[in-house]
């Protein structure tokens, strides 16, 4: 077994909205190359956990060490760290007033200082890989949901991130489009990308993840390799959850 490098170290992460404690102390080490799938009942805090990782939600306690730096400390330049943490949203959140190419290149050009040619070549390459090479000049609203989500993944990849955060990437899609997006994510995982993915796609979790965590009531209730996780759940809560989601 090769020694694993910890990319994100989460310690006692807490988050409360008003008086409601959503996250009540989460501890997890995410290693480089890990594909972590986060599952859990709705309202359990799994999306909040993911959004705390790049501080789209500000945590109210604990720490997140990313690349050796605590990104929850006040003085840190979170923008620099976010460049290395790609995020894919449930609602895609492409920029509707820009062409696909502009969506993909604005980050690398303005933040990474890449030239237009360089950024466009990289974008073109990645678009080809997800099968959308011919849509560079389209606007987001001219694409289907599945196509939009693939573009959103490419947009995150163009920043050459070290980790990809997926927030229920297939939940807003028509069923026949889920496959094309999962296929892209699967390839990404095979290429060794570190991924943290909140999803309800148990098939994907079973097949692609190397770790599955179950968040319930703001804590990690159970963590295991997928085989173990699905075939031999330990807690009663997980058993109940799995019995509901796997028909």
């Amino acid at each position: 077994m090769t020694t694993k490098e910890v990319l994100i170290k989460v310690e006692n992460l807490q988050k409360s909205f008003g008086g409601m404690n959503v996250l009540c102390g989460i501890d997890i080490d995410i290693n480089r190359g890990d594909v972590v799938v986060v599952v859990g009942p709705s309202g359990s805090g799994k999306s909040t956990f993911l959004r705390c990782l790049n501080r789209l939600e500000e945590s109210t306690g604990g720490s997140i060490i990313f690349n050796g730096e605590d990104i929850t400390s006040p003085g840190v330049n979170i923008n620099k760290h976010r460049e290395k943490m790609g995020m894919v949203f449930q609602q895609f959140n492409l920029f509707p007033h820009m062409t696909i190419m502009k969506n993909l290149t604005i980050g690398p050009m303005k933040l990474l200082g890449k030239s237009k040619e360089e950024a466009e070549q990289k974008a073109k390459e990645l678009l080809e890989r997800v099968g959308l090479g011919d849509r560079a000049e389209s606007y987001p609203n001219q694409l289907s949901g599945g196509q939009k989500q693939r573009v959103a993944i490419v947009r995150a990849l163009c920043m050459e991130p070290e980790v990809m955060l997926f927030d229920e990437p297939t939940s807003a899609l028509d069923p026949e489009m889920v496959g094309e997006v999962l296929e892209v994510m699967r390839e990404l995982a095979h290429d060794g990308m570190t991924m943290v993915c909140v999803t309800h796609e148990m098939g994907f979790a079973r097949e692609v993840a190397n770790r599955v965590i179950f968040i319930d009531e703001g804590v990690i209730a159970e963590e295991a390799a997928p085989e173990e996780f699905f075939s031999n759940p330990k807690s009663a809560r997980l058993k109940e959850f799995l019995s509901k989601v796997i028909v």
Binding site: R82, G86, F89, Q91, N93, F95, H97, A156
Partner: peptide, 23 residues
Amino acid sequence: VDKGQIEAGRSLGFNYVQTMVNF
């Protein structure tokens, strides 16, 4: 404007002002 647009901009690493101006 959809809040998701701000989140998308910020998640790429744009700061608040850049996100406002560009998106």
